[in-house]
Design a protein around this nucleic acid. Structure first.
Lengths: 153, 153
DNA sequence: GATCATGTAACTTCATATGTTACATGATGG
DNA sequence: CCATCATGTAACATATGAAGTTACATGATC
């Protein structure tokens, strides 16, 4: 299954880091991600293990991207955030010998793998900086719209 | 996300119905589905609404397939069991106006829809009776294996 | 060494799926 | 017509896991 809110929340945080230019504290990220600092550290810890972000303690410390945003794909982030597979069937009572489940697995196993592969491939085709550019474009457009509304009065 | 255990559980129940030839009570199904009668009714109610099964009260009552197993696909069952979409992103704080989520949606929306479509197409290609035949084949083979073990002594 | 920031364990909600009890409704058989 | 059987469903209990919170240790910087 999909760990939906988490990916989107983490992306908020990462886009925030890109814009910052200096380490961003868990507290600041917590605001961007609409949660609290401890949860931020918990989630970001996963990204750090995958070499996506870095953390530093003490004065001027906080979180930064560990590498260039153009080299970080959404697939990596998705995996780091902890979503093993899209689809997980059966296993209700750990019955690997169940003949019904075997039949289902046989009928759909390939489909699952195929769907999973396609999904990850798509995620792998989008990098963080692509997303950041897109976001900035939207932001500019959004601001323009507000400007227009003001002048229209 | 995927309502994993439910589909597999329901399939157990449905295969049981196919083999029975007469109405199967919720109590009997509960055993086949490793749960209890009330849960069975709850889940089967969804299938009944989709015209997949029928229920009858009173003596000799219980659950039967509403149509031929060859006309019932796993896709229908999957939907009836209550799994709206495989993937559900965002919506953490109901922020349709959030520019980050808009950017993500724009980048991945098509991928989501594509993956979903493929998955449902695969589910749609498998009918209940195909599954039942496959199951019976496995059962026969399984029995044969046990026979062999007995004679080998 | 005072301060700031992360690291992490332990605990508390909170949401949701599932299980359970209890009783109402309807069908069948005698 | 009434006892019995089966579903229908509300109301409540339990279990699981995610998210939030508190508290304190560790390490870095000024």
């Amino acid at each position: 299954m999909i760990r939906d809110s988490r990916l989107s929340s983490v992306l908020h945080g990462l886009l925030h880091m890109i814009g910052a230019g200096e380490p961003v504290t868990s507290e600041q990220l917590a605001k961007a991600m609409a949660t609290n600092p401890v949860v931020v550290r918990r989630v970001m810890a996963g990204l750090r293990e995958q070499g996506i972000v870095r953390s530093e303690k003490g004065h001027g410390g906080g979180w930064t991207l560990a590498r260039d945003a153009s080299g970080i794909t959404l697939a990596e982030i998705y995996r780091a955030v902890g979503a093993p597979t899209i689809i997980a069937m059966g296993h209700r009572s750990e019955n690997p010998g169940c003949l019904v489940e075997q039949a289902v697995n046989d009928a759909l196993g390939d489909a699952f793998r195929e769907v999973e592969a396609i999904f990850m491939k798509r995620l792998g085709a989008v990098t963080l900086d692509t997303l950041a550019r897109d976001f900035k474009r939207r932001l500019a457009k959004h601001r323009q719209t507000i400007e227009d509304q003001i002048h229209a009065r």
